[in-house]
Simulated scan of single mutants.
Amino acid sequence: MHKLLTVLCLSVVATFTTLTGPSAGEEVVDPRALKDAFFKTVFGLEYGGHADAFRVKRFEGPVRFFVDDRSGVGRALEARRFLNRLPRHIGHLRAEVVDRRSRANFNVVLVRDKDFAAVVASELRADSIAMNARCLVGVTTLNGRIQQSTAVIVADDDFLFSRCLVEEVLQGLGPMNDDDSLTESVFNDQSQHATFTKFDQALMNVLYHPMIRPGMTDSEAFRTLPQVFADLGLSH
C-alpha cells in the first residue's frame, strides 16, 4: 500500500547583481539537453528520499492555486498574473486561481524575509530545513499523483520573489530535483534565471503531456519520451 508522502524542495538561491533572462540563443531548445533535464529534475528529490522519489510526480486533475499574501508589500496581483498565465505555456495543464484557500490544492504563501522561517515552521513543520533555505515548497504525493502543494515565497526582495515564484511553483507541479548542470533552467540554484525560460516551458510541457503518467518509472518514461517529443515537435 502506498502512503501519502510529503516532499520538501528548498532553494538556497545565489544572489546576483544583474538579473538576466534567456538570451536569443536559448530560444531553440536542444532535445538532447531537454531529455537529460527531464530525468535529472523529474526523478530524484532535492531534499530527502521517499517512495515516489524515482517516479513521475505531477497533478493529474485541475490545479487550484490560492495566493495567501502575508507580506504586506502588494505582490499578490503579480503572483496571480503569473499563475493565471501558466496554462498558456504548459499544454494540458488545467489550472486556475481561486478565491478561497479551502478550494485550493496549491497554496502560494507570500511572506517577508524576516518571517520566512516561522511561516515554514507553521505551514510545513520544517523549521530546521528553513534555516538553510531562501524559499521552499512542500508537496504531498500518492502513487506519483500530487495531492497538495504549498510554496512559501519571500516577497520583499525583488530577486528572491521573481526567482522563487517561478522555481517553487514549477517544483510544486512536479519536477522536484535540482541539478547544477542545467544552465538554461531555474532548477539550478546557481543559475541567474528569474523568469519562466523557454527551456523550462518545454520541460513542463513534456511532464504534463498525457502520455507521461503519474507513477511512471524512469524506464517507462524513457520508452515513452520519443513519442512525446515527436508530438510536441521537439525531435531533431
Score class of each variant (00 low, 15 high):
228 V>Q: 05
110 L>D: 06
186 V>D: 03
148 Q>M: 15
182 L>A: 02
140 T>M: 09
13 V>S: 15
48 G>I: 02
53 A>G: 11
194 A>S: 14
234 L>K: 05
210 P>N: 09
22 P>R: 00
100 R>D: 12
98 V>L: 01
203 L>D: 02
165 L>K: 03
29 V>E: 05
213 R>S: 11
125 R>G: 00
52 D>S: 15
64 R>D: 05
219 S>W: 11
99 D>S: 10
92 H>Y: 15
189 D>A: 07
205 N>C: 08
151 A>S: 15
71 S>C: 00
59 F>S: 04
180 D>H: 12
156 D>E: 09
31 P>I: 00
168 E>S: 14
161 F>I: 02
79 A>Y: 05
64 R>Y: 10
210 P>G: 11
98 V>Y: 01
119 V>G: 01
107 N>W: 08
173 L>Q: 04
141 T>P: 02
29 V>S: 01
104 A>D: 02
85 R>D: 15
225 L>A: 01
129 I>L: 12
135 C>G: 15
147 Q>G: 03
222 F>H: 13
86 L>K: 00
145 R>M: 10
147 Q>S: 14
81 R>Y: 10
225 L>E: 06
200 D>H: 10
81 R>L: 13
26 E>D: 15
110 L>H: 02
218 D>F: 14
94 R>I: 11
21 G>L: 11
82 F>Y: 15
203 L>G: 00
87 P>V: 09
87 P>Y: 08
11 S>A: 15
21 G>I: 01
189 D>P: 11
156 D>W: 09
208 Y>W: 06
132 N>V: 13
191 S>C: 06
6 T>A: 03
64 R>K: 14
166 V>N: 10
25 G>V: 04
164 C>F: 00
2 H>I: 09
